[in-house]
């Protein structure tokens, strides 16, 4: 059995911040599931899984951070759009601050190690 502490695994990191990432891509523009996935990948989160985004959207919606509405589409299936609501925006701000604080601590740590 191999130890799991040796290497930083991007998918493991992602698990902790996917909620925040999804909230972030919805900050300026509503989107449907696959659209949100594309935005995340376009932003550089190449490894994000389709199921993860779908499940995350369902959970954020169930927890009252998102609103949803259905947009009929002529050629394809109907699309369920998700939008940040007030609670979602509050959560985005709060989690955003937590992440920023965490990230800067990590930056400092790495910089100090680098200097040392």
């Amino acid at each position: 059995m191999r130890s799991s502490v040796l290497r930083v695994d991007p998918t493991q990191l992602l698990k902790g911040v996917l909620d925040l990432a999804v909230l972030a891509v919805l900050r300026d523009e509503d989107g449907y599931g696959y659209d949100i996935l594309r935005r995340l990948r376009a932003a550089g989160l190449e490894d994000v899984g389709d199921a993860s985004v779908y499940g995350t959207l369902r959970r954020l919606f169930n927890n009252g951070l998102l609103n949803s509405y259905v947009v009929p589409s002529d050629e394809g299936p109907h699309r369920k759009y998700y939008a940040l609501n007030a609670a979602g925006r509050t959560e985005l701000q709060r989690s955003g601050k937590v992440w920023s604080g965490f990230a800067s601590i990590m930056d400092d740590l790495l910089r100090e190690r680098g200097k040392a």
């Binding site: 698990k15 993860s52 499940g55």
Partner: peptide, 18 residues
């Protein structure tokens, strides 16, 4: 091909959905 087997998708889905 794109998403992997349904079982893997289900595992990822249920984990991310909490």
């Amino acid at each position: 091909d794109r998403l992997g087997p349904p079982e893997a998708y289900a595992a990822e889905l249920s984990a991310s959905a909490g």
